Amino acid sequence: MAKALISKADLKRIALQEIRAFPGSDHVISVEVECETGPPSGIDWRLYVIASDEGDLDHIQYAVKIASDRLKRQYDLRPDR
C-alpha cells in the first residue's frame, strides 16, 4: 500500500490528536516534527512533544512511540517548497 504525502503542519495536527487520545497523554501541549533528508530513504522525521508538568512521562513516551510508528506507516512527509 502506498503512503500518502502529508505536509508538516498536517502531520503535527494529526500527531497531536493521536497522542492526546492515549490515556495519560492529555497534558501534551504541542508536537514538533524534526526532519532529516538524505539518501537512500528520502525524508525521515521524528516527533517531539511539549507537555505540562502534570503529564505522565511514561504514558506520553509510549503514546509518542505508538503514534509515530503508526503515522510513519501511513504517511511520507511532503518536501517543503
Rank of each mutant, 00 (worst) to 15 (best):
H27L: 01
S7G: 11
A21L: 01
K65D: 10
K12Q: 12
Y75G: 09
I14F: 01
R70Y: 07
A15Y: 02
D10E: 15
R78S: 14
D56E: 11
V33S: 00
S41I: 09
H27W: 10
D80C: 00
A9I: 06
Y62I: 01
V28A: 05
W45T: 06
R20M: 06
A2E: 15
P39I: 12
A9M: 05
R46A: 02
D58S: 14
D56K: 12
Q74D: 07
I6H: 05
P40A: 10
A9S: 12
L5F: 02
K12C: 12
Y62A: 03
A67I: 06
P79K: 07
I29H: 11
G42D: 09
L77T: 04
D69N: 12
G24S: 10
A63L: 08
Q74C: 10
R73T: 08
L47H: 02
I29G: 05
D53Y: 15
K72Q: 05
T37M: 12
S25P: 07
A9T: 11
W45V: 04
I29W: 04
P40F: 06
I14E: 05
A9D: 09
D53W: 03
E36D: 10
M1T: 01
T37W: 01
V64F: 08
S25G: 15
I14N: 00
P79H: 07
I50K: 15
V28L: 05
K72A: 08
S7K: 13
A15E: 08
R46M: 09
V64R: 04
Q61T: 11
A15G: 04
G55S: 14
W45K: 01
S68W: 03
Y75S: 01
G42I: 07
G24I: 02
F22L: 04
Y48M: 06
